[in-house]
Design a binder for these strands. Structure first.
Length: 109
DNA sequence: TGAATGACTTCGG
DNA sequence: CCCGAAGCCATTC
């Protein structure tokens, strides 16, 4: 593996750019990368980034604001816990004010 | 090389 | 927003 982690690298960068207390979607990231159809790959990249603590994958959710990847975290509670730590209300594995907390990668911080 | 998998998205009902 | 099915792309075996 590792021809050129460009795809992952970008996904990581975007994830790191997510402001504190904000969240974004896989599709948004994928779109920002130039391939919104590759939203799944973003998730895949996040999976690989799971090892990298510098990548706040917990701030990345699906388009409904659901923590679909919580099961892939160290613990199912960890992802939600981290979000709540940042002041994000999470109910039933979903971001309550997701629409308000949503952050577009193309948008400037 | 081909088939299978996946932390998604979109469309139709 | 719930349900089922199809599509897309990159990685893996």
């Amino acid at each position: 593996m590792k021809k050129e982690d460009n795809f992952f690298e970008r996904a990581y960068e975007v994830a790191r750019r997510i402001p504190y207390g904000r969240v974004t979607t896989y599709g948004a990231i994928a779109n920002y990368l130039g391939a919104k159809k590759s939203a799944r790959m973003v998730g895949w990249a996040m999976n690989a980034s799971s090892k990298d603590e510098t990548v706040p994958a917990h701030r990345v959710v699906n388009r409904l604001g659901v923590l679909t990847g919580k099961f892939h975290f160290n613990g199912i509670n960890l992802m939600q816990q981290l979000l709540e730590e940042e002041g994000i209300e999470v109910l039933e594995s979903k971001v309550v004010k997701f629409k308000s907390l949503f952050w577009d990668p193309s948008s400037k911080i």
